[in-house]
Design a protein around this nucleic acid. Structure first.
Lengths: 222, 222
DNA sequence: CCAAAAGTGTTATTGATACACCCATGC
DNA sequence: GCATGGGTGTATCAATAACACTTTTGG
C-alpha cells in the first residue's frame, strides 16, 4: 500500500439499495423522489452515507429499516460503483445491495400517503438520478440470472405459499411462461419445499396445498 | 440521502487485487510481504489507495501494472469489504478485484530477485495481513464457481494452447480429474475454440493441435 | 521398438421438454 | 351445473457420464 497520502483524497462512501418486490404481476423496485439538488424531483434508489463504525451490511440494513416496515429481508451485496463523475458534487463511491421482500410484508401495502416513495415496475422506469438506472439494470439482471439457478425467490414470497404463487413469481422474473406440470415436478424434486398441510380458502375453487421453503437465508431487522 | 455530514466520516477507499495464475500444477496468488506496521513482514495481497479522479477499474489496472509485467489481464470486480476494524489504523473500505494471468506471460517468470513478491499456492497459505485470507478465499471460491460454467480460464492460458493444457487448468482449479474424451467433446462442442493449425514440437510424442479462444475479454494495460 | 502424450466412439443414464385431462370447491 | 384454479403421468429428446484402445512422434 502507498503511504503518500498527498496523492489521495478520501471519497465519500454511500450504500444504495435496489429493493425488489413483485406486485400486480410486475417486478417492481422501491424508488424515492429526491427533494434536493442535484436531481431534485427525480427518482432515485434509497441509500445513505456509511457511518463511522458501521459495517457495509449494517448500513444496508439501516437503510432498509428506514424505508420499509419489513422484519426480515433477503439482502446481498451487488457491486460497487465509483466513476469519478457519478455525483456532480463530490467523489462518491457507492456500495450497492439488492434486497427482496414479499409484497405481503409491506405494512401498510403501498406504504402510507407519502408521494415521494413509490414501487415502480422495472421495465417502465422514469428518468433516474445519478447512475441509478445503470445500478438498477445491473440488479435486475443479477436477480434474473440468480433466480434461474437458485431458490432466492423465497425472498419475494410469504412464508407459506401455493405452488402456483411460486410459479407466478418465476414467470414474472424470467419473463417467460412455464409448464405447470414440469415446474411442479422440478420444484418438488429439489427437496427444498415442505408441505405445511394447511389449505387456503380463497375463491370458488379447490383449495391449494401450502408450502414453505425448508431453508431461507434472511437478514433480520431488529 | 442524509445530508447531516456530522454523523459521518470519510473512510479511506483502497483497491486490493487477488491475482491468480497456475504454475507447477497449482493455483497460485501473487502476495507481497509487508514492510511496515501493522502486519510488518506478513504477506498481503497487492493493493493501493484509490486516487482522486480515478475510477475503481482504473485503480485496479494501475495496481496490476505496478506489480506485474503483463500486457493484458482478465479483471473482474469481486466484492467490497468494510468491517470497521479490518484495518487497525483507520477506517478502510476495500473494493477487491480478481485477476487471471497466464504464467507464461510473466517476465521474467518468478519476477526478478525481489523477495517481497511471491506466488504462493492458495491451498498452502501462510498467515495473511488484515482480512486478506477471507478475501483470498472468497476469490478462490468465485474462480472455482465461475470456471464451472464459463470460459474465463482463458485468462490463465497463453493465446495458443493444447486441449491437454486446457484440461489441466480446469482440473487444477476444480480439484478433480476429468475424462479426456468427454472433456474434448464438450469443449469443441461449445464452438468457442478455434484450431490454429500449427503444431507444437516439444517432446518425444505426437505433436498436439493448438487452439485459441475465439473470444476473450481482457483489460489491456497501456 | 519403446516411451509419451495425442487423439478418437459407443452405450447407459439422467435430466429437460412437450403435452391434456380430471378434481374439489363456491356460488 | 358451471366457473375457477388445483392437481396429476408419460413419451421423447438432449446432455452427461462411463469406459479403452490406436496413432504419431523422438530417441
Amino acid at each position: 500500500m502507498n503511504t503518500n497520502y498527498d496523492d489521495f483524497e478520501h471519497p465519500e462512501v454511500t450504500v444504495d439499495l435496489v429493493i425488489f418486490t413483485v406486485n400486480e404481476e410486475k417486478l417492481k423496485a422501491l424508488l424515492i423522489k429526491r427533494a434536493e439538488m442535484p436531481y431534485a424531483n427525480i427518482w432515485s434508489i434509497p441509500g445513505g452515507f456509511l457511518k463511522k463504525d458501521e459495517s457495509l451490511d449494517n448500513a444496508a440494513i439501516r437503510v432498509m429499516k428506514e424505508k420499509t416496515g419489513v422484519k426480515e429481508v433477503y439482502l446481498e451485496q451487488l457491486y460497487t460503483f465509483g466513476r469519478p463523475e457519478r455525483d456532480p458534487r463530490m467523489r462518491v463511491i457507492t456500495v450497492t445491495y439488492f434486497a427482496l421482500i414479499p409484497w405481503t410484508s409491506l405494512i401498510p401495502p403501498e406504504s402510507s400517503k407519502v408521494t415521494d416513495l413509490a414501487w415502480l415496475a422495472v421495465d417502465e422506469l422514469p428518468e433516474l438520478a445519478f447512475d441509478h438506472r445503470e445500478i438498477l439494470e445491473y440488479a435486475t439482471q443479477r436477480l434474473r440470472t440468480k433466480a434461474s439457478y437458485s431458490n432466492i425467490v423465497y425472498g419475494l414470497l410469504p412464508a407459506h405459499f401455493r405452488l402456483s404463487d411460486l410459479q407466478n413469481i418465476y414467470e414474472i422474473i424470467i419473463a417467460r411462461d412455464l409448464d405447470k406440470r414440469n415446474f411442479r415436478k422440478r420444484m418438488l424434486a429439489t427437496g427444498l419445499l415442505q408441505e405445511t398441510g394447511r389449505k387456503e380458502i380463497t375463491g370458488a375453487h379447490r383449495p391449494a396445498m401450502l408450502y414453505k421453503f425448508k431453508k431461507r437465508e434472511f437478514v433480520l431487522l431488529d
